[in-house]
Simulated scan of single mutants.
Amino acid sequence: MLEVHDLTKRFGAATAVDAATFTVDRPMMIGVIGASGAGKSTLLRMLNRLTDATEGRVLFEGRDVLRLTGRERRDWQSDCAMIFQQFNLVPRMDVVSNVLHGTLGRRSTVATMFNLYPRADIHRAIDILDRLGIAEHAPKRAEALSGGQQQRVAIARALMQDPRMILADEPIASLDPMNAQTVMEALRRIHEEDGRTVIANLHTLDTARRYCDRVIGMRLGRIVFDGVPEQLTTSVAREIYGAGADFSEAATSTEIRDPYAEAAMRDAAAVV
């Protein structure tokens, strides 16, 4: 499906992504991990063509998407939907209209200017919101929703594009653990039920292990790990993050914990 060969991005003398190479031969959910500045966001932006690559090739079903221009480039950006950390919704617009913005790439200028949508698209938008558990919020302004709900609206907007692949750039970085879990479960269901490839930039190891079929680790712009979650040991994580022996996964965990239950377990262990 997707072949990335020596993909490189330089900003002046700085190299943000250095000869990234990997292949995705079937639909899967992939987590990209690494410290801030490792090149994760730049990698996704090059795949989506939001940022031009300096060197390399990105082949999707044999076609080099880095060479696409004009309409073909816009069509690729519909096939390769992007979800952002900050949601990128129109705050004062109602939720269903935000979702319908996922169809802008295939609508006429006049229809866009007058905010005209086919009835079938409106019904489909509401069905997608229902699938994500937020259909009751369809008439509300986006700004009235919680962060987790807004991110699900952003996912719904991406699904309106009917993409072949979804790229999620730190989709849970600004969410609390409960909402982070809800969003990651939604992305996992989309992968499993629709057969879509999902590539998500993630900060936390527990999230990558729990939801992803494959994990790519980046450090200083280079891919330094590519394997299954079971191979993502603490020692491997130290290498990815450039951390010492004091590295603790718990410090960045998004797992939902019950502090009272954990205290009871520690007390029981102490008695034994």
Rank of each mutant, 00 (worst) to 15 (best):
T182P: 12
T234S: 11
A251V: 13
R189Y: 02
E262T: 01
L167W: 01
Q181R: 12
R209P: 10
L205G: 04
M178T: 12
R238Y: 09
L232P: 05
A168P: 04
A251Y: 09
D213Y: 04
D258T: 12
L175K: 07
T182S: 15
P177M: 08
D213C: 03
E239H: 11
V271D: 09
V224W: 08
R210F: 10
D176K: 15
P163E: 03
V228N: 01
S253Q: 10
N201M: 02
E185D: 05
I216R: 00
D162R: 14
A186K: 01
S248F: 11
R164F: 02
A263W: 04
N201A: 03
A200V: 03
E239K: 11
F225V: 09
A250N: 06
T254Y: 12
L220Q: 12
E185R: 05
R196N: 02
T234E: 15
A264W: 02
A268G: 04
G221D: 10
R209Y: 08
E249S: 08
V198C: 04
A251R: 14
D194Q: 13
D206E: 14
D258H: 10
D169Q: 07
I216G: 01
D194I: 01
R209W: 04
D206N: 15
A264E: 04
F225I: 13
E262V: 03
L167C: 04
L187Y: 11
E239G: 11
Q161L: 11
Y211E: 02
V183W: 07
C212G: 06
D194H: 13
A263T: 04
I240H: 07
R210P: 06
E170C: 13
A180T: 15
R222L: 08
P229E: 15
Y241Q: 02
I172L: 02
V215M: 06
D194C: 04
Q161V: 14
Y211W: 10
A245W: 14
E192W: 06
R164S: 05
T197W: 02
L220S: 07
R188L: 12
G242I: 05
E193Y: 11
N179T: 13
Q231A: 15
A173G: 09
A200C: 00
R238N: 10
T233C: 03
P177D: 11
A180Q: 15
H191K: 00
T182L: 15
H203W: 00
D169V: 11
D169Y: 13
D246G: 15
T252Q: 12
T252M: 11
L205Y: 07
L205R: 05
L205F: 07
